[in-house]
Amino acid sequence: EGEAHRVLFGFVPETKEELQVMPGNIVFVLKKGNDNWATVMFNGQKGLVPCNYLEPVELR
C-alpha cells in the first residue's frame, strides 16, 4: 500500500506523530500534505516524515 520511497537522510522525531527513519530505509507514502510532510508506513508503524527526506524508488 502506498508508493515506495527511499529515505535520504536520518530523521529523529520531535513529536509522537513523527516517525524515526534511517538513510536507505524503504518507506511507503500513504499521503503527502501541503505542509511538506508525508504520512508514511515503515515496519508496521505509521508517522510523519519530511517530504524532502524522501525520493521515489521503483521496487522490482
Rank of each mutant, 00 (worst) to 15 (best):
E1G: 10
E1A: 09
E1V: 11
E1F: 09
G2Y: 07
G2V: 04
G2K: 03
E3K: 14
E3D: 11
E3A: 10
E3L: 10
E3W: 09
E3F: 09
A4T: 07
A4C: 06
A4K: 11
H5I: 01
H5D: 00
H5G: 01
R6S: 04
R6W: 00
V7F: 01
V7L: 02
V7C: 04
V7N: 03
L8D: 00
L8V: 08
L8H: 01
L8P: 00
L8A: 07
F9N: 14
F9I: 13
F9Q: 15
F9R: 14
F9G: 10
F9S: 14
F9D: 15
F9T: 15
F9E: 14
F9M: 15
G10Y: 09
G10F: 06
G10V: 08
F11H: 15
F11Q: 03
F11Y: 15
F11V: 05
F11S: 08
V12I: 14
V12D: 10
V12R: 13
V12Y: 13
V12G: 06
V12K: 14
V12P: 04
P13H: 01
P13E: 01
P13I: 06
P13G: 10
E14C: 10
E14A: 12
E14S: 15
E14V: 11
E14W: 07
T15V: 07
T15S: 13
T15K: 12
T15F: 07
T15N: 13
T15C: 08
K16I: 10
K16N: 13
K16G: 11
E17S: 10
E17N: 10
E17L: 09
E17H: 10
E17Y: 10
E18R: 13
E18H: 12
L19S: 04
L19E: 03
L19M: 11
L19F: 07
L19R: 02
L19C: 04
L19I: 14
Q20E: 13
Q20H: 13
Q20G: 12
Q20S: 12
Q20I: 04
Q20K: 14
V21C: 07
V21I: 09
V21D: 00
V21W: 01
V21E: 00
V21L: 11
V21A: 04
M22D: 12
M22C: 13
M22S: 15
M22G: 12
M22N: 13
P23T: 06
P23Y: 01
P23N: 02
P23F: 03
P23I: 03
P23K: 11
G24Q: 02
G24S: 00
G24V: 03
N25R: 04
N25K: 05
N25E: 13
N25D: 15
I26E: 07
I26Y: 03
I26M: 05
I26K: 07
I26P: 04
V27D: 03
V27I: 01
V27R: 03
V27A: 01
V27Y: 01
V27H: 00
F28Y: 15
F28A: 12
F28M: 14
V29Q: 01
V29T: 02
V29R: 02
V29K: 05
L30P: 01
L30Q: 10
L30T: 11
L30G: 05
L30A: 06
L30N: 04
K31S: 14
K31C: 10
K31E: 14
K31Q: 12
K31L: 06
K31G: 11
K31F: 05
K31P: 05
K31Y: 10
K32W: 08
K32L: 05
K32I: 02
G33C: 09
G33S: 15
G33A: 13
N34E: 14
N34R: 14
N34M: 15
N34C: 11
N34G: 12
D35Q: 06
D35N: 13
D35T: 07
D35R: 06
D35H: 07
D35M: 03
D35L: 04
N36R: 10
N36G: 15
N36V: 00
N36C: 06
N36Y: 04
N36M: 04
W37E: 05
W37T: 10
W37A: 08
W37Q: 13
A38F: 03
A38H: 01
A38Q: 01
T39S: 10
T39P: 02
T39N: 08
T39W: 09
T39Q: 12
T39G: 03
T39F: 07
V40F: 00
M41V: 14
M41F: 13
M41I: 11
M41N: 11
M41E: 15
M41R: 12
M41W: 12
M41G: 05
F42M: 09
F42Q: 06
N43R: 12
N43H: 08
N43C: 06
N43F: 02
N43G: 10
N43T: 04
N43K: 13
G44K: 08
G44F: 00
Q45T: 08
Q45L: 06
K46L: 10
K46Y: 11
K46A: 08
K46T: 13
G47W: 02
G47Q: 01
G47Y: 02
L48Y: 12
L48R: 15
L48I: 15
L48M: 11
L48W: 01
V49D: 00
V49R: 01
P50E: 02
P50I: 03
P50Q: 00
P50V: 02
P50S: 01
P50M: 00
P50W: 00
P50Y: 01
C51W: 15
C51G: 06
C51F: 11
N52L: 06
N52Y: 04
N52M: 11
N52Q: 13
Y53L: 11
Y53M: 08
L54F: 01
L54S: 03
L54G: 00
L54Q: 03
L54M: 06
E55T: 07
E55C: 05
E55S: 06
E55L: 06
E55F: 03
P56H: 03
P56T: 04
V57W: 04
V57R: 03
V57H: 07
V57M: 12
E58M: 09
E58S: 13
E58V: 11
E58Y: 07
E58I: 12
E58C: 12
E58A: 14
E58T: 13
E58W: 07
E58K: 14
L59R: 15
L59A: 15
L59Q: 15
L59D: 13
L59P: 15
R60W: 12
R60Y: 10
R60T: 15
R60F: 13
